[in-house]
């Protein structure tokens, strides 16, 4: 990242931890940069999943963003102070322990 770009950084909170990201990043990109590993669990099997296509096709990147569940994190651009969290429940209910 060059000097000019670093002036364009904003802070988001990935699983509660602050992270400086580029203003053009997506929430899914921020999760990846945060080293989050997985971003959701499958509501069917509980398996850990992570963004796969990054262009709105696969829906693997569903996350809780600013408290709203099931957002396609690859389609959401970061905003200052955005809270980006893993989606591990269905409608707030833990389906897998």
């Amino acid at each position: 990242m060059n000097a000019e770009m670093s002036t364009n950084l904003i802070t988001v909170y990935v699983e509660g931890k602050p992270l400086a990201v580029h203003a053009h990043d997506s929430a899914a990109g921020a999760a990846l940069k945060a080293g989050l590993g997985y971003t959701r669990t499958s509501p069917v099997t509980g398996e850990k999943r992570a963004p796969y296509c990054m262009m709105g096709v696969c829906f693997e990147c569903l996350m809780v963003i600013d408290g709203i569940p099931s957002r396609q994190a690859c389609m959401v651009r970061v905003r200052e102070g955005m809270r980006i969290e893993r989606q591990t429940t269905v409608g707030g209910v833990e389906v897998w322990p």
């Binding site: 990242m1 770009m5 990201v21 580029h22 053009h24 990043d25 997506s26 990109g29 990846l32 940069k33 590993g37 997985y38 971003t39 398996e47 850990k48 999943r49 992570a50 963004p51 796969y52 296509c53 990054m54 262009m55 693997e60 690859c74």
Partner: peptide
């Protein structure tokens, strides 16, 4: 192919184009 850490080349290229990842 569903394991975290596996993604498409296109996905990685999008990350490169948007945030030089």
């Amino acid at each position: 192919w569903t394991l975290p850490g596996v993604m498409t080349v296109g996905a990685a290229q999008i990350l490169y184009k948007t945030s030089q990842w």
